[in-house]
Design a protein around this nucleic acid. Structure first.
Lengths: 205, 205
DNA sequence: TTGACAAACAAACGTTTGTTTGATATGAAT
DNA sequence: ATTCATATCAAACAAACGTTTGTTTGTCAA
């Protein structure tokens, strides 16, 4: 059996790390090949060119994430409980230190400045996740709430979760090293949940 | 009189546009010079090298913004009014269509992935703005609120404003073109203010 | 053993990169 | 008129870039 998949996989992982850290233009093919322990010509051999390697790396970073979100709750679950669980799950994905850190970094990069890899990312990962949240909000907000208002509430919640991933360096700089110890997954999930639940409760006037 | 400042300024503006659109690595010196109608050697003549040109472009994008924030309110102004004004002002800066669009783009880029220009950016613009917000929150939150909790509330507010700048392409994609008409400066400011005020009111239990 | 084919490699390719050079033009001061 | 610093330019620079090439290696079928 030929180890056909092995260099290809090492190339994908190395590309993910490098591109996540330095972007598409900043990430150099030579560095990727060096880190993957493959020959310098392998990128073109396996992926055609640098851009298709980048797209494959982004797709790999997103795959496997949305399934966990879409699981069903018992029919009588209060929407507030669903929302707490949604926030907790989303933060867990974003801050998950177990999986390679570049997975979220390279996706945040796509969010801020979409490239050719963005379309598939929205269809396979972002839109399904967003629909789960909008369904929950549909239960919590007054029935006559216009659609755009529901979107705004959804973004107000998601934005709080994304903030600490997208702007972590500046947040740490402002807060200071000691106090930033509190900004772990559990404390953030609790704060965002309380903040958002309070906002939504008051909103139905 | 020698037009000493003219090519320098055109260079700065062109650099801002290009760097904002393509990042530091993606922005090429030749393209900047071409757009600025100056000779290819001018970057090195006026700024030394590409990196210092980038730093100057970022600084120019930030300058003049914080002063407007730091103005004083009458002593008896309710903190809720200050907060509404703060959010309105921040959104106005971020979404201001009058000033060149690359001003905010290049700053968002620095937030997400700090470069050598970041330190001055935080000191001169971000930290002063943040302090205004944290002072307002100091009036609204219970006196014994720990410092890190106040930071989290501040970030919860700021994150909502930043979201639509940092993730505008994806937000528009999810909402759809018709409903996205509602996401203008005024409606967003109103929503974020109501959402945040409700959250803070409920928080003092 | 042989032929065929994919995989892996070192080396070199042509381009593009940021930067430097040396010459020329300009304008005020001596 | 001469001097001198400043400003602008076309041209060329070395280095780094993504990619291509030609060859070698290892494996399996005939």
């Amino acid at each position: 059996m030929t180890l056909l998949e092995d260099p290809r996989r090492r190339l994908l992982d190395a590309a993910g790390e490098v591109f996540a850290e330095k972007g598409f233009n900043g990430g150099k093919v030579r560095e990727i090949c060096l880190r993957a322990n493959v020959n310098g010509a392998s990128v073109n051999y396996y992926f055609g060119d640098k851009e298709r390697l980048y797209i494959e790396a982004v797709k790999q970073a997103a795959c496997g994430l949305p399934e966990e979100q879409v699981r069903q709750w018992p029919a009588d679950t209060p929407p507030a409980v669903k929302l707490r669980e949604f926030i907790r799950t989303m933060l867990a994905h974003l801050m998950n230190a177990a999986k390679p850190a570049w997975h979220t970094r390279i996706m945040m990069r796509e969010l801020a400045q979409p490239t050719s890899a963005c379309a598939e990312l929205v269809r396979d990962y972002i839109a399904p996740t967003a629909n789960v949240l909008f369904a929950i909000l549909g239960e919590m907000l007054p029935p006559k709430t216009p659609r755009w208002k529901r979107y705004m509430c959804g973004f107000s919640i998601v934005s709080q979760c994304l903030y600490y991933v997208q702007n972590k360096p500046i947040a740490r700089l402002l807060v200071g090293e000691e106090d930033f110890k509190w900004f772990d997954e559990a404390h953030l999930a609790e704060h965002i949940t309380q903040f958002s639940l309070a906002a939504l409760k008051r909103n139905d006037e």
